[in-house]
Simulated assay, not measured.
Amino acid sequence: MIVSGGSNTVRETVRIAKTERLNTLAREYVNCNRQLQCSDNNVARSRLNCQLQNIEQQMMAVESELEELDSASQDSNRCQLILDENLPKIDFKAAIQRVQGIFKGFPPEGGAALFLVQNSLPFMGDLLVKEIKDCLSKSTRDFRVYPVSFSPGSGLDQLTFLHRIADQLGVGVSERVECKKKYVESIVEKICGSLRTGSTIFFEFSQWDNVPSTAQPELLAWLIQDFWHYLERRLRDTANKWRKIRIVGTIVVDGMIAEGCTQSVAFCNDVDKFDMKNLFELPLEQWLESDIADWLGSFSDLPADTIDAIARRIYRASLGGMPCLICEALRKEPQLKQTKIR
């Protein structure tokens, strides 16, 4: 049999073979023990006892090998999880600096910010969103995430969008009115009524690419002007009673938003000109060889020459530092699977 694939495939093949071997030994042990119980010949009984001891030793050896395989598999999975957790730390410096600058500019009572992340697929925008959520969760006492995906299977219109938020907020059926304006007000009142000092609400709007390009300008304009503006206005009214309340949203686009969107809403990418009502675009950039080396130096225990060699090799194959290619290469890097990722 020819086995293709990575180390996980090989490990699973070995596990199957050893499990089959253990089952075979178990059957031999049962048969041998049955013969022993039925025999009254001392010579035969002595031979069967020796055979049983031999089979038992083989079974214990195979069980020990299976335990080692399980331990190696758990270590590999744990290493992969830690690696994935730390990948957002490679290089989103420019975007994170803008985000932190905006948050620091909020008044004492708090504020709102809606971010746009374009070209998410090649530039790993999902990792940037994960890093933003991580920063927020570490600096608040009440952190809540409301993911809203634009899925074609359940509709892409404004009412469906509101239903998805309402489901997570526990908005009752009687409050889900056909009038979108009143529906928005009902949802926003539910949100603002739950806020206290230190509360942070995070809306994660994903799969925007599923919205047809012809429908994107109207939906985006409605989302910002009817939903976000009202939410921001009511937040200011509510925040007077509390301190450090934040409502943050990210619109994640695998590619680029439709051209008409730039005419339908107000954009901003300058922290000094930030407006809570406008959509703020976060920059995504290609990564440098030094970014890869710095990350390896921070999250592995590899020697310097190995770090430099890995960073150089991965960067050379990444088409000028494309984050998606670098992340994939790091996940497959055999030397990272054999070292401690911290």
Rank of each mutant, 00 (worst) to 15 (best):
I96P: 11
M322K: 03
M124A: 04
M276S: 15
G320S: 10
D226C: 09
K244D: 15
I257N: 01
V253M: 05
K277L: 15
F203V: 04
R98W: 03
M124S: 05
T19K: 10
S194W: 00
A309W: 06
E65Y: 13
L116I: 04
I90H: 04
Q57E: 08
G321P: 09
S194R: 02
I307Q: 00
I2C: 04
L282T: 05
E281P: 04
A95E: 10
L169A: 11
S7N: 10
I307W: 02
S199H: 06
N269G: 09
N8Q: 13
L296D: 02
R234D: 12
A95M: 09
E285I: 04
V188N: 05
I251F: 08
F123K: 01
D142V: 10
G320Q: 07
A266F: 14
L83R: 07
M1K: 01
F227G: 05
G297C: 02
P283N: 07
T339I: 12
R47Y: 09
Y230E: 09
F106W: 10
A309N: 03
T9R: 07
E63L: 11
F227D: 05
F299K: 00
L330I: 02
A72C: 10
K180I: 15
K340L: 08
E281Y: 10
T140G: 01
V248E: 13
T214N: 07
F103C: 09
E185F: 08
E285M: 03
E68R: 11
F227R: 01
H229T: 13
W295L: 00
T306P: 02
C192T: 07
S154W: 12
I201Q: 13
W208C: 06
L302P: 07
P334I: 03
R331W: 04
G260K: 08
M1C: 02
R21K: 07
I55M: 14
P283L: 13
R196P: 12
K244H: 12
N33Y: 03
E175F: 14
Q80F: 08
I102R: 00
A17Y: 08
D237G: 02
S300P: 05
Q53I: 11
A95R: 06
L223T: 03
Q225P: 01
V10P: 00
F115H: 03
C79V: 11
R27F: 11
E20Y: 11
M60T: 13
G193K: 01
V171A: 13
Q216V: 05
G101P: 15
E218K: 03
I96E: 12
T13G: 01
Y315W: 14
Y146W: 11
S46A: 15
K18S: 06
D209R: 00
F150E: 02
L319Q: 13
F280I: 09
N42W: 15
S318F: 05
Q100C: 14
E285L: 02
L136E: 10
Q37W: 07
R15S: 04
F227L: 08
L325I: 09
E232F: 14
I257Y: 04
V14T: 07
L284M: 07
W228Q: 06
C32D: 07
E285N: 09
E189Y: 10
N23L: 11
N31S: 09
G110W: 10
P334G: 06
D209H: 01
V129F: 06
V265M: 13
P152W: 06
F299L: 01
I314S: 01
W295Y: 03
K182N: 15
L296K: 00
E178S: 13
S64T: 14
Q118H: 01
I310D: 01
L162K: 02
R243E: 12
D91Y: 13
G255N: 09
R234S: 08
